[in-house]
Design a protein around this nucleic acid. Structure first.
Length: 482
DNA sequence: CTTAGGG
DNA sequence: CCCTAAG
């Protein structure tokens, strides 16, 4: 089920020559400023009548099904959300700053557990109870072990929504003056302003599955769904551009080159949870997290942490409502809507019995989404090499403190892994290497240090190296042209 | 919590 | 990058 996002009226006016990145950026911006205050589940009553839930079963899960759509298992009942709409309300923005809680997202290796066709036409299916406890236990263990994210690997793939129906595509009928000009562009790109007008009526949202106590209120359901949606979009909202159903991954090409301006009716957009792994450098991607992690200690996922601090004001004002009406409120749309945007921790903990939240509440807790990939830059590699040259390959903690003390996103394990790949990279032909090329001299140093600190090699005396780097540094330099 | 390695 | 068995 794909969802039509709120009417994200995004009338983006782009220059045909502009990079797709710019387009995505604009769309993102608009979406983010759209804020979804409520989630309505029109299908709920139709597809998931309370009667569908046996008394002895108490949970319904919400999950995200990614494209391969067969990677989730659910313990109890599964409710297939047919469609829901995100209602946006002008005025409230900073959606990301408001919705920050997201837990209980699980993905399981087998999809067997989920059999749509077996849903009694209600989209509900029961599962083995035992699995739940098992899962829970494991999860807890993981959590306590400070291993947040665990079973979510398949949950947030960037490219799930494949079925971008033509509906999600925007037709630019009502585009104003620009429209006409746009149309003209269809045949000729030489228009004076060289702009293309795109009217995005909605976005596709990945399919969702929800699990929660059957005693949950509709209000909590809505909130849960909101969280689910937020989990997908809240982290870092990105827009994917699809042209005739095919995702355009190359952000560098221009609209003109993609033909967007000429085939607007085959153009689609999709919301993506993770960062685009474009040619972006490392810096722009995550600064916020690192800086805010501490603040969001008691809240949601790492990805949305930064938002926590920001949403406090609003949350505070809404707390009253929350406390007073509790999750029992389902009636007043208004209320529900408001509640929907409230980052309620305790409540969720209760409602979502399955996933008691992360008590530790440390940084990146619940939604254990795989960290966004952040390729090491050459400078980082250099720092790593330098540190390893002096510290060796068995003291990653020290390496971390020495060269990446301020890089919160680089753990010593990361450094260790990076070193591993560096050694490998240095061992293969340049043609086989991928990603940003690492200067050969650095790779040479990697190999040198690697062998230097190999088991049989003369071990580290004290702290400084032995010969290779200490005494013969000059020699090394000559050898490697440094 | 760190290491060290496999996944 | 993740997950974990061992220290």
């Amino acid at each position: 089920m794909d969802t039509n996002g709120a009417e994200v009226q995004t009338d983006a006016v782009e220059k045909p020559s502009e990079d797709l990145t710019a387009v995505k950026s604009r769309v993102n911006h608009r979406v983010l400023n759209k804020s979804y205050n409520s989630v309505h589940l029109p299908f709920y009553s139709d597809h998931v009548p309370s009667a569908c839930f046996p008394s002895h079963r108490n949970n319904v899960k919400i999950g995200i099904r990614d494209d391969d759509e067969n990677s989730y298992s659910f313990n109890h009942h599964i409710t297939k959300m047919r469609a829901f709409r995100l209602h946006s309300r002008a005025g409230c923005r900073r959606i990301r700053k408001i919705f920050t809680t997201t837990k209980h997202w699980k993905s399981a290796p087998k999809l067997k557990d989920y059999d749509p066709s077996n849903n009694t036409g209600l989209g509900v299916k029961s599962f083995d109870h035992n699995r739940k406890s098992i899962y829970m236990r494991k999860r807890c263990q993981a959590e306590s072990a400070s291993k947040r994210r665990k079973l979510f690997h398949h949950s947030l793939k960037p490219d799930y929504v494949q079925e971008t129906s033509s509906e999600s595509i925007s037709n630019l009928p009502k585009a104003k003056a620009v429209t006409s000009s746009f149309i003209n562009h269809k045949s000729s790109f030489q228009s004076k302003d060289g702009h293309v007008t795109l009217s995005i009526k909605s976005f596709n949202v990945p399919e969702l599955y929800i699990e929660m106590p059957e005693t949950s209120t509709v209000g909590s359901l809505k909130r849960t769904v909101m969280e689910a949606v937020t989990a997908i979009l809240g982290g870092e909202l990105h827009v994917g551009v699809l042209l005739q159903g095919k995702k355009i991954r190359d952000d560098s090409i221009t609209l003109q080159q993609t033909g967007i301006s000429l085939n607007s009716d085959t153009l689609g957009f999709m919301l993506e949870p993770s960062f685009p792994q474009d040619s972006q450098k490392e810096p722009p991607l995550l600064p916020p997290y690192d800086n805010h992690e501490p603040l969001s200690s008691s809240l949601s996922s790492p990805i949305m942490n930064l938002d926590c601090s920001v949403d406090h004001p609003l949350a505070t004002s809404l707390d009253k409502i929350e406390n007073t009406q509790e999750s029992k409120i389902v009636s007043a749309e208004e209320t529900v809507d408001i509640k929907a945007i409230v980052p309620v921790e305790p409540l969720n903990a209760e409602a979502l019995s399955i996933v008691p939240l992360n008590h530790k509440a440390s940084k990146r807790s619940e939604l254990s989404q795989r960290r966004t990939r952040r390729p090491f830059s050459v400078s980082e590699v250099e720092a790593l090499v330098e540190a390893v040259e002096t510290l060796g390959t068995g003291r990653w903690r020290d390496v971390k403190n020495r060269a990446f003390d301020d890089a919160n996103h680089r753990t010593y394990v990361d450094l260790k892994d990076k070193w591993k790949t560096l050694v490998h990279t240095a061992s293969i032909s340049p043609q086989q290497r991928r990603g940003e090329p690492v200067p050969q001299d650095l790779l040479d140093r990697v190999l040198a240090a690697h062998s230097m600190w190999s088991p049989h090699q003369s071990k580290p005396h004290g702290k400084q190296q032995t010969e290779p780097i200490q005494t013969p540094p000059v020699k090394v330099c000559l050898e490697f042209e440094r």
